[in-house]
Nucleic acid binder design. Structure first.
Lengths: 340, 340
DNA sequence: TTGAAAGCGCTAACAC
DNA sequence: GTGTTAGCGCTTTCAA
């Protein structure tokens, strides 16, 4: 097997076997081409016999269309993100595009990987890690490669963006916490800023401010469970001054919950109400029953793919910004009120 | 912008601007090519000015090398799988390959998607969903496209495979449960067979048999938390007859735990010991502290990529089967013994 | 409906 | 070191 030099079978081979020209085999594999059913059958038969497959890369070179798209994501091993990416990948495939998956944690990596995608002539890309620099976006613009950003902000124009309505999100968190009486609020947010996560926390604080209620700010190391668990210790110390906390991700909220219950014997929601964000699967698990804010990952991903595809087919249209509303999920870390 | 017909800049344009031949621009972008530093700089400058990028697809057509590989995975939104895929994707990129991500739940889909990958001239593929049919594998063999299967079995020869040592896994589960005295065992496994998940459960049962201990079998709808939660109800009914249960995935175990604690007030591990499988992040969370069996997803993914790359560079070598040992993780759903 | 010829963007031989 | 030529596998005019 190793010494046999395998030449891939090309349209030429098929043409020869079928006794037609190469153009004919091309036509046989092109929907709606001018070819008789008879010839098509003949070609297909020859192709099957030889194990011929159209080389889509060569086809793309000729047609100047690429079916490749890029998905660049960070924290793929996180419940929310993995869901988002799963749906995005599926939707791409459903529409005839093939997603190249790039996972990148650091901002520089992201830059480099996106840049690399241009070499593959991608038809578009979906970005849900760090936002690309304006240099990259400019390049994408000039190359006519549509970019769609999910919950990322970018300095210069060009990309379509799908984003959660941060103002509404902050207000919702506020109302979920205060509707049943919480008055001494806190918010937990990651140390390193992120458009979406820091954004919702800031929006929450502004809403508190507008309503003249004081809010304590805790920062944690990242958006993870462990970070929440760690900051939960600090929260425990201040428990007498707080009766409602907004955790900027569910993962953080779950960590906080575990720490508070384990080390401080805190009664949730009686002593402290907790609201998370994302509504990851784990938030609904029996040990947690976390009240949270649902951002629809499936819808985001689907919309992103739709926007990208639309822009591929219609490169001229102006960038779109699509704002998504979030919805409350009341479980058991907020107190019941009689309206419920 | 929409009316401007953008012609992509090619090596020809760069050559013209730099006053050299197209070969020179090709050489300028090829490491180790015979070209003076002077010319290289000149070419690179022209390229930068024009915004030129090598078209890797066209390059691949010529060199007959593809940097594209396929990763086909199911249940990407699951903690274990998303971790596996994240690492696999990263390792591919690190080695200069670009992973096309295909997510597929149903077996037919898998077939179809894998088949499609051949059209993209992929250099190899990693499969961690359903195993491909022998027809597909035969095609891959004849096309010299290396396939590596992670925890999947396949009827015919060709693919490399990375797999957990199922016998050891079953024995380990048995010993973790019995070391501290459990005598009336049970196992929970999904209704639909899966090589790896059903395999470890079967192996556990065989080990029980060899040791003359009786084992009850419960089946659940899938490998998910919810499936575990549901079957937890049945388990509750039989609680008097069982003092140790092996759940074939952590997700199932977590569901069982929540159900048993919530509806049956079961004391774990005093009344019932539970062992899971995978060691997903959630197993270590404070509310669960699940004792489990660790299969190293990172190592699996890395090994898979290495095997694939090795085979790309050395297509002649015989298929390899790499067996991975699993390790125990004792947390709080098994009883302590004095050795611990 | 079919075939011939040109060319997508690139690299590899070969000559100089 | 550098340029010329040929050709990767495919589709697409254009004539027939």
């Amino acid at each position: 097997m190793s010494e046999k030099i395998r030449k891939s079978v090309t349209s030429f081979d098929v043409a020869k076997l079928a006794g037609v020209s190469r153009s004919m085999v091309s036509r046989a594999f092109t929907d709606g081409a001018d070819i008789s059913e008879e010839s098509r059958a003949k070609v297909k038969a020859a192709a099957a016999q030889l194990g011929y497959r159209v080389n889509h890369l060569a086809r793309g070179l000729q047609t100047r269309h690429s079916e490749l798209v890029g998905i660049v994501a960070s924290a793929l091993d996180t419940p929310f993100r993995s869901r988002q990416v799963k749906i995005a990948a599926r939707e791409c495939i459903l529409r005839g595009y093939r997603p190249i998956l790039l996972v990148a944690e650091k901002t520089e990596e992201v830059e480099q990987l996106i840049s690399m995608l241009f070499n593959y002539n991608v038809a578009g890309m979906i970005i849900t890690s760090a936002a690309p620099s304006s240099e990259i976006v400019r390049e994408a613009n000039s190359l006519d490669v549509p970019i769609v950003l999910i919950n990322r902000e970018c300095d210069i124009d060009g990309p379509d963006v799908i984003e959660v309505d941060l103002v509404q999100a902050g207000e919702l968190a506020f109302s979920m916490l205060t509707r049943s009486g919480a008055k001494r609020l806190a918010v937990i947010q990651p140390k390193y800023p992120s458009f979406s996560v820091t954004g919702r926390a800031n929006s929450f604080r502004e809403c508190c401010l507008r309503n003249d209620v004081d809010v304590k700010v805790f920062t944690c190391a990242s958006q993870s469970y462990q970070a929440g668990f760690d900051v939960g210790g600090e929260l425990g110390v201040s428990l007498k001054d707080i009766d409602g906390v907004f955790c900027s991700t569910d993962l953080i909220a779950l960590g906080v919950l575990d720490r508070l219950r384990g080390d401080w014997n805190t009664k949730v929601p009686e002593e402290l109400e907790i609201v998370g964000f994302d509504n990851i699967e784990q938030a609904g698990w029996g040990s947690y029953n976390l009240s949270t804010i649902y951002q629809n990952a499936d819808e985001q991903a689907t919309a992103a793919v739709e926007l990208m595809v639309d822009r591929i087919k219609n490169p001229g249209r102006a960038p779109l910004r699509q704002r998504q509303l979030v919805t409350p999920v009341f479980r058991k870390t907020t107190r019941n009120t009689h309206e419920l």
